[in-house]
Computed example of a mutant assay.
Amino acid sequence: MQVNSHIDKGQFISQVRVWARELGFSQIGVHNVDLSSAEAGLKAWLSHGFHGEMAYMAAHGMKRARPAELVPGTVSVVTARMDYLPRDTPEGWQAVELARVQSTQRPREGVISLYARGRDYHKVLRSRLQKLAERMEQHLRDQVLAPVDGSGRDTAFQYRVFTDSAPVLEAELAAGSGLGWRGKHTLVLDRDAGSMFFLGEIFLNLDLPPTEPVSPHCGSCSACITVCPTQAILGPGRLDARRCISYLTIEHPGAIPEELRPLMGQRIYGCDDCQLVCPWNKYARRSTLPDFDARADMARGDLLTLLAWDEAEFLRRTEGSAIRRIGHARWRRNILVALGNALRGGTVDAEDSAAIRAALQIYADPGADPLLREHALWALAAPAASGGSEVF
């Protein structure tokens, strides 16, 4: 049932923005339920198989582009942006992070995407979106005296919150409601905040006036396309997820294609390269929340130390982290690839080479997990460092 109240909707949205900022959100927009312009692109992306093994991307058909079918009764979507750079991010952070992934000076250092170094964003955004929706509900109840059920819930006002956990075209909703534009890497970009932010939505049965989209400002820049290590960005707005390092290290469940392994470098969870070279990210904002501050193990972890975690240690160290969802085996698979690349980089000394090969040999034994064994054998096939020794 759609809410038909006599509230001042412009004033209501202004109040929602105040509540949102109190909860750590950076920007609020409103979109209607018409995403028909995105359907052709979604169909084409799926038909090319660019979603890889992310079957959930196709499982709901066009519901992704039809909010009112996904949540019946929805007539408006409140969109939200939350910045996630850690509070202690230094000036010149883009150059610092680029140096980490492009340099071979610290071959044993694992690189984790900036967004995943702190608390799981799903948990942070979902809880705060829920609080925002509850404030909206209470405000409407006070204004229009709508009836409530036995739980105290407004029976007329209905909502559902989302953040990267359901068939929702988040980037399209964000761009269409003025939170930014779709960059050539497909991420949402804002002139005042770059792209280092999370997105969330509240589907509502309350008809609210949409906010205006903004025009794109990428111009002739193609830095994100050029820098992609695996050339996963095929052209402006065309991403083949099957080649994307974020997909390979997080979503892909099996063996990583051998031809892509050397291109992953020391990246063991996600990839930020296309954002690190984006000129607009010089305006990226630090989070106001401690939730996204980097955990010590996630900022500059030693690959051999991370590999040595047994499953219990992995679960303990990743409690409350987005990293936990890939599981222990996939975590180790990614580290084995990074160690193989460390050996191939030619900058590990003989002592480190011997230590790495000894660790790899554990996973190369015939009785080891087949997935891990495949990647360990590949890593061990790297040439020995000068003065190093093979360990078999």
Rank of each mutant, 00 (worst) to 15 (best):
V16D: 08
E97Y: 09
R117E: 00
G152P: 01
A133W: 11
D190E: 10
G176W: 09
A59N: 11
A329T: 13
D310F: 06
T89H: 13
L248P: 02
M62I: 13
N281V: 03
A174L: 08
C274H: 07
A80M: 10
R126A: 15
L35Y: 04
R243T: 07
H375L: 10
S127C: 12
A38R: 15
L248G: 07
I268T: 01
Y363F: 13
L360N: 00
L248A: 08
E351H: 14
I362P: 08
R261T: 02
D88E: 13
E109W: 08
P366H: 06
A384W: 12
L132P: 01
V168I: 02
R106S: 13
G270E: 06
L46P: 00
L377F: 06
G254M: 09
W331P: 00
Y247F: 07
D365T: 14
M264S: 04
E319T: 13
V124E: 10
E390R: 15
R242P: 06
E137P: 07
W93T: 08
R117C: 00
D272Q: 01
S386I: 14
A355H: 04
P370K: 02
S165Q: 11
M264I: 04
P86Q: 09
A368R: 06
S215Y: 12
M298Y: 12
E39K: 14
H185I: 07
V161E: 08
I268D: 01
R261Q: 11
